[in-house]
Design a protein around this nucleic acid. Structure first.
Lengths: 225, 225
DNA sequence: CGAAAACATGAAAATTCTTTCAAAAAAGGG
DNA sequence: CCCTTTTTTGAAAGAATTTTCATGTTTTCG
C-alpha cells in the first residue's frame, strides 16, 4: 500500500514544521509549497491525495487558488485559515473546499480530518453503491433505484441526485449545486436548480408537496436526507 | 499545570485588597498596576491570561488603554467599572473588551467570569462543530441541533445563533450583533434583534419566558450560555 | 415609588424566495 | 431531416422570511 500524498500550501514556517512532524510520523508523504504558484505546480506534478491550503498566501489569494485548483483537481482540499467568519467558510465551500479548519488547530484534529477525507475519497472509488434510505445509486452501472425499482432519470437529474446523495445531511448552497452539476459559469442561474429539484421530487418523493428527501433551506440551498 | 496569570489595573486600594484575597486564594498568580502606564508595561512583560481593567485610571483613560492593549494583546480583558456608566460599558465592549462587571460586584461572580473567559481561551477553536450544552452546530454541514434534533432555522436565525455560539459566555453588544448578522449600515435597528432573539428563544429555550441560553443584558446586548 | 427608557412579542405588511406550469430552444436518435 | 426527449427560459402563483408596527411588560434610575 502506497503512502498517501499530502501537499501543504502555507508560508508560515511554524505551521510547516508542525505539519511536517505530525504528517510524516503518521505515514504520509508530504510536499511543501510556500506560494500559490509553487503550490499549483506541485499539485499538477504530484497529484496529491489531500491539499492543505492556507487562505493567506503571499502571491495569490487562497480563494482564487482554490478556484484554479478545482478546474482540474477533484480530490480533497482542506482549508487552513485564521479567519473563522461564516462568510469565509461559505465562500470556501462554494468554491469547492472539502473541509475547513481554523488556526490554531490541534494536530490530532487535523489528522482526524485528513483520515476522514481520504477515507471518503477512496470510498467514492471503491464502493460504487450509495444507499440512502429507500434510494440506492450504483455509480458504476449509472443506475438509481427507489425501493428497488429503477428510476428513469435524465443525465442532469442523475447528476443532481448523486451530488445530493454524496452529501447526505448537509446543506448544499445553490452555488455549490450549480457549479457541480452545470459547471462553473452557470452559478447565477438558480432557476435551473429549482426546475430540476421539482422534477427530482416528482420522481423520488412520495408526496412532492411534503418532501422527505430534498429539503428546502430558504435563502441558502437544499439539504438531502 | 501553571497557575493562570491575572493582571489587575486599578488604583482603588480596597479593590486591590479584595481582588488579592479572592484571586490568590483561588490559585491565580496576580500582578497589580496602579496606573495605565504601569499596566501596559506589566501586560507586555507578563502576558497575563486575563486583564482586569478599571475604566477610571489616574493617568490614561481606560478606553484609550483598552485600544492600545488590543493592538497586540488578544486574550481576555474584563472591564471593572463604577455603577451607572452603561454608555462606557457598551463602548468598551465595542472596542474589544471581553466582559465587564459593574462595581460593586460580588467576588463569586468575578471568579465565575474569570473562569469562563479562561476556559474559552484555551478552547479549541479549530473545530467546525460547536457544542454548547444541548446545542450543537456543524458549520460545514450548516446544521444546528438541539438535543440531537435538527432545528428548523431561517438563514438569519442560523447566523445569529452561530454568532452567539462562537461567543459563548460573553456579552455581545447590539452593535456587534447587528453588524455581524445584518452587515454594516443596519447598526441602529435594535428592533430587528429583539424580534429575532424572541424567535430564536422560541426555538431553543424550554421556557422562552425564563431563557437559559440567550440572556438579556439590558442597555447593552445579549449573552449566550 | 413613578416616570422614562428598554425590552418582548404577536401579527400585519412588504419583500424575497420558491414552486409550478408551459412554451421555446437545443440536443439526440433513428 | 424529422420526431422525441431534455434543457432552458419566462411568468405567475404560492410560500416563507424579513421588516414594520402596535401593545404590553420589565428594567432602570432619580
Amino acid at each position: 500500500m502506497n503512502k498517501p500524498v499530502v501537499l501543504v500550501i502555507d508560508d508560515e514556517p511554524q505551521i510547516q514544521k508542525l505539519l511536517q512532524i505530525n504528517l510524516e510520523n503518521n505515514g504520509y508523504k508530504v510536499h511543501y509549497a510556500m506560494t500559490g504558484k509553487e503550490g499549483l505546480l506541485l499539485a499538477a506534478n504530484q497529484i496529491p491525495d489531500v491539499i492543505l491550503l492556507d487562505l493567506n498566501l503571499p502571491d495569490i489569494h487562497g480563494h482564487q487558488l482554490l478556484l484554479e485548483l478545482r478546474e482540474w483537481y477533484n480530490k480533497a482540499i482542506i482549508i487552513l485559515s485564521v479567519l473563522n467568519s461564516e462568510e469565509n467558510i461559505v465562500k470556501a465551500l462554494d468554491n469547492g473546499a472539502t473541509d475547513y479548519l481554523t488556526k490554531p488547530f490541534r494536530s490530532g484534529e487535523l489528522l482526524a480530518r485528513i483520515r476522514s477525507v481520504i477515507r471518503r475519497n477512496s470510498l467514492d472509488e471503491s464502493s460504487s453503491v450509495l444507499q440512502i434510505g429507500d434510494i440506492e445509486i450504483d455509480l458504476i452501472a449509472h443506475v438509481a433505484k427507489l425501493n428497488n425499482e429503477v428510476l428513469k432519470l435524465t443525465a442532469t437529474e442523475y447528476n443532481l441526485l448523486v451530488l445530493f446523495a454524496k452529501n447526505e445531511g448537509r446543506v448544499l448552497t445553490h452555488q455549490q449545486l450549480l457549479k457541480d452539476v452545470w459547471g462553473v459559469g452557470n452559478q447565477n442561474d438558480t432557476q435551473y436548480l429549482r426546475v430540476f429539484v421539482a422534477q427530482l421530487r416528482k420522481k423520488i418523493e412520495k408526496d412532492p408537496n411534503q418532501p422527505k428527501h430534498i429539503i428546502t433551506e430558504s435563502g441558502v440551498g437544499y439539504r438531502f436526507q
